[in-house]
Design a binder for these strands. Structure first.
Length: 477
DNA sequence: TTTTGAGTTGTTCGA
DNA sequence: GTCGAACAACTCAAA
């Protein structure tokens, strides 16, 4: 019996229930479909580079049998079924609104033509339709969601091993060269970025082990300090399914003594579950304010401000360091993501969707659920959002969370010689100290593009205006 | 149904 | 320098 295993965001052979199911039935056709628009629209540039590298690794794990085809899933599957005589198709479930729609239609079409279809849970600890309140409605606050998951929902299953024997079939007639992912012209940039990472299942496991051995013991405190190696950096591996959340959960439970650091890290994994829960139950999350009274929010328009933010040229060192890290590596430390997010949305008063889109294109861990839920959280319009008056001060944040400047100096070499006392506010630095450090404001490093105090007050006023507008509305209603 | 307690990550001001 | 209060009420979750 021949079964097609359709890989998507599960680019691994261990703890892959769809692959295990296919293997148990006989011959397996491993297939990846590059869906229309995926190369140009759905996936950002950094993610696409990761995907290409990860597919190559998966192909190695499958003895070169991975079939990569560009096209609509229904027609690709129909063609591969014709070519191979496969009688079943299996996959691990996806949860993005468009993916759900595609998978639903594909399943219906296949079943209608007499093909067996089997899907599995592999990318989440708990299905979003299970992690709901007693009355069946979705959670909108993280803490009760988390408590309920830990106390009431089934303990995450143990990971399943890699199939002991894989009878792989090749369908070489349909294989597309990796160059068709459209990366050829971006080679130098991609090569530079990928120096920071090892995409693929083995790389993911190496990272997990390194984190457990070295970062986890100081995670609860250290995770706030971007100069430390105290975060896991597993996010891109998790996004592409090179490692599953239950593999991580299981490794934590079996290899780490119970302590606050472990609990805190697992909580972050549950935040991911919460984001998927929100996206599933509120499918407009990527584009619409979850709190609809934000719909009239007076966002500014400024392509200059946006460009300065994107390029790491705002004149605020901790912000610029973060944006440069993002550009160079496809990643940004979590603490810094909050700082740059707050700066865009509150100090620059630019729409959170602009930040969401830039992150989407730049991040190797770009993930629709996490990205949209997190940007809405930062902007204050999401579930369980930060109060709007919580506006990060980039000077204070830098001094507090990168006191020695190790992170900031790494990504802003032009400020490396500035003393700590002025690193986060070079505009207050005495001219002699500036010139000793080789800094010329407005030349080697920009002047601040906005002033902190007025921009903070402007943001608070905008929030106030929105509130007043809303109360007028409710009075009318 | 009503009530009650609680809610990721901050900053500023004034004592 | 340190500390508590104010910031803004509002919605959510569960008893």
């Amino acid at each position: 019996m021949t079964t097609i295993c359709w890989f998507r965001q599960d680019l691994r052979v261990t703890d892959n229930p769809a692959l295990a199911w296919a293997a148990s039935r006989g011959q397996v056709i491993p297939l990846y479909i590059l869906e229309p628009g995926e190369a140009s629209v759905t996936l950002g540039g950094a993610s696409l580079a990761w995907l290409e590298a990860s597919l190559a690794k998966l192909n190695d794990s499958l003895d070169g049998a991975l079939c990569v085809v560009e096209g609509h899933p229904e027609s690709v599957l129909a063609q591969v079924i014709r070519d191979t005589g496969a009688t079943a198709v299996t996959w691990n479930r996806r949860y993005e609104p468009l993916a759900i729609e595609t998978d639903k239609e594909t399943m219906a079409t296949l079943k209608a033509s007499g093909v067996e279809v089997q899907s599995f849970k592999a990318g989440l600890l708990w299905e979003p339709w299970v992690s709901v309140k007693k009355d069946g409605t979705p959670y909108r606050v993280f803490t009760p969601f988390c408590k309920n998951a830990l106390a009431q929902l089934p303990t995450p299953e143990a990971p399943i091993p890699r199939p002991s024997a894989l009878n792989l079939a090749r369908t070489e007639s349909t294989v597309v060269e990796a160059s068709s992912l459209g990366l050829a012209d971006r080679r130098p940039w991609v090569q530079r970025m990928l120096k920071y990472w090892v995409p693929g299942e083995a790389g993911a496991m190496t990272r997990l082990n390194a984190f457990i051995d070295q970062g986890l013991e100081d995670y609860k405190r250290g995770r706030d300090f971007p100069a430390l190696e105290a975060v896991s950096r597993l996010s891109p591996h998790i996004h592409f399914g090179e490692i599953s959340p239950r593999q991580i959960w299981h490794a934590m439970q079996t290899r780490v003594e119970g302590d606050a650091n472990k609990e805190h890290f697992l909580r972050e994994l549950i935040w991911r579950e919460f984001s998927y829960h929100l996206l599933y139950h509120f499918p407009t999350l990527p584009t619409e304010n979850l709190q609809t009274h934000f719909d009239g929010f007076p966002w500014m328009t400024s392509s200059e401000s946006l460009a300065a933010w994107q390029r790491g040229m705002t004149g605020y060192p901790i912000v610029d360091a973060g944006m440069r890290e993002l550009w160079a590596t496809g990643y940004m430390h979590n603490r810094v993501r909050m700082i740059v997010g707050s700066f865009l949305v509150k100090n620059l008063l630019l729409d959170w969707r602009l930040g969401e889109r830039w992150f989407w294109d730049c991040l190797v861990d770009a993930d629709q659920a996490n990205n949209s839920a997190s940007w809405q959280w930062v902007a204050g319009c999401g579930a369980d959002a930060a109060p709007y008056f919580r506006i990060f001060n980039p000077v204070t944040q830098g001094e507090k969370f990168d006191p020695q400047g190790g992170y900031t100096r790494r990504w802003l070499p032009e400020l490396a010689q500035l003393p700590d006392a002025y690193l986060y506010k070079p505009w207050e630095c005495p001219p002699i100290v500036l010139s000793d450090a080789g800094v010329v404001l407005g030349d080697t490093y920009p002047h601040p593009i906005v002033e902190l105090k007025p921009s903070r007050e402007r943001a608070l006023a905008a929030y106030q205006a929105m509130k007043d507008h809303r109360s007028v509305h409710s009075a009318e209603g």
